[in-house]
Design a protein around this nucleic acid. Sequence first.
RNA 1: GGAGCGUUGGUCAAGGGGUUAAGACACCUCCCUUUCACGGAGGAAUCACGGGUUCGAUUCCCGUACGCUCUACCA
Length: 518
Amino acid sequence: MDKKVRTRFAPSPTGGLHLGGVRTVLFNYLFTKQHNGEFILRIEDTDRTRFVQGAEEYIYETLKWCGLIPDESPAVGGLFAPYRQSERKAIYREYADKLVANGHAYYAFDTPEDLERMRTDYKTEANPSPRYDATLRDKMRNSLSLGDSATQELLAKDTPYVIRIKAPLNETLEFKDMIRGTVQFNSSETDDKVLLKADGMPTYHLAVVVDDFLMKITHSFRGEEWLPSAPVHVLLWKYLFGLENMPEWAHLPLILKPDGNGKLSKRDGDRLGFPVFAMNWTDPRTNELSKGYRELGFLPEAFVNMLAVLGWNDGTEQELFSMEELLAKFSMDRIHKKGAKFSYDKALWFNKEWIKRLEADKLLPYVKAQFEENQIETGNDDKRLLEIIDQVKDRCILLGDFVEQASFFFKAPEKIDTAAILKKWDEHKKIFFAELVRAYELNQDFHHENLENIFKEIAAASQIKPGDLMLPFRVMLVGGKFGPHVFDIASSIGKSDTIQRIKHGLSLIDTDAEKATT
RNA sequence: GGAGCGUUGGUCAAGGGGUUAAGACACCUCCCUUUCACGGAGGAAUCACGGGUUCGAUUCCCGUACGCUCUACCA
C-alpha cells in the first residue's frame, strides 16, 4: 500500500457517543496508528442539530478520555476543513447537481403525504414495504415522470424538492469488505434514496461519499447496520469519482443487548441498570441524563480494554490489553463477523482487573477525587494514601468503592454493625476490650505486630479465643465485616483514634443491647 | 415480504478434517484468609438441523431452520 492511510469518524452530535460508536473509533484509531496514517473527525450535523449545546465538545471529551484523539491530528480543522457537515452544504449541492446533469439522479417533488400514500397504496402481503424505486418512480411526481418543461416550471415556482439517485436495473454491485470479504448486491434491490433533502442538506449517503473522496479517505469504518446501504454508496462512487478510488470498507459487528436479541440501545441500559455511554450524556431533546462509565467509576484503560475485546481477540488467552498492547496486537482480520451480546458483569470484571493492575500512584488522582466528592478529608500525606490504596485496591470493583473500602482510615465509621457483634457478646468480652484500651493507652509502639501481640496476650489472660474477639474489634474500627487486616488498620489510624473507636463501639453496644432486651 | 449478514457452553470466545473441543465472565463446591475481598484447586455446561464429500466432519460444500440489520427528506 503506497498511499497514505487516512481514516475518519463521523459522529452525529445529537445522539451522544455510545458503546458501539466508541468501539468504532477505537478500531479505526488502532488501524490508523498501526499504518502511521491520519485520522479525521468529521461532525455529521445538520441545520437542525448543529446548535445543540456542547454536543461536539462532548464527543471530543469522550474520545480524549479514552485516549483516542491522537495529538498529531486536531479534532477540528486541518487539511480538509471544514469538517462540519452543515458548513459544507454548497459542496454537496454541487455533486448532487452533477448527478442530475449526468442522468444518475433526478428531482422529486413528492410531499410527505404523497410518500405516505405510495406506501399504503402499494403495500401488499408480498411487499409490505414498497420502495421508491425503478418499478414505482414513473408513478410519482418527479422530473422523470413529469418531463422537462413541467419540471422547469415547478423549479421556477420554488416548489420544494429532493434529489434522488436513479438506481439502475440488474447491475451487480460489489465491494470488498475488510471483515467480510467480497459482498455482492443486485442494483435492482436498492431504491432511489434521497441524496439531497428539501432543506438543502445532504443525507448520509451523499455526504459520506463526497467527504470520503474530498478528504482522501482510504479506509472507512462503520457499524454493520450500514451494510444494506452500501450499494447506494458504491453506485455514487461509480457515478461520481470512479470505483477505483473507493476506500476499503469495514463493517463492524454489532453490540447486542445482554438479554434477548437485537442491537444494544440506550433503553436497554436504563432497563438493565448499566451505562451505554462513555461519559454522562444529557439528551438535548428530553433533557434526560444517562450515566456514563467515567462517572460510574470506570478507568479509561478498563473501558477501552472491554470494548476492544468485544468483537476482537488476538487468538491467545490474553484478555487484558493496554493501549500499547492493542496497538501491537490488533489486526483487522481477527475482528469477528458475529455481533456480541454485551455483558456488564464482564465490564465490571475488566475494571476490577485494571484497578488491581495499576500502580497505586496511577490510582491516586482518581481516589483523591472520590474522597473529595464524598467530603472525606485525606490530608496531605500522599505516602499514607498510597499505602492505603495498595491495601484495599484488590477489593475494589469501581473507583467509588475506595470510599467504602478506605474512608475509615480517615474518619470514624458513622454507623456500626452492632448486630454482628451482639450475636456473640458477653460481659467477658466487654471486660477484655476495657483492658485492651488500658493496655493500648500505655503502649508507645503502635506497629501492627506489637498491637497483635498485646491483643493476644490479654485474650489469653481472659481465656477467650482471639478469633472471637477479632470480629468485634474490626466492626468497632471500620463499622462492618470488611476491610484489610485489623491490626494494619489500627496501626494506620493511630493510638488515639483506635482507642476512641473502641470506646465508642462499647457504648453503642451497650445501648443497642439494652434496646434489644426491652 | 425482500435483500444482506450471521449461527461453538447461559454469555464472551479459541480451534478449523482425526483434539479428553482451550481460556474468560457468571454459577456451584472446596482450600487459603480468626472479616470482606484477592488468590488457589475442582465441578456442571457447547459445535442449530438435514444432506453430501471423506476412512473420518464441529471444521469443507449444498440446503433448511433460526436470529439480526436494513427496507425514512435518521444516522
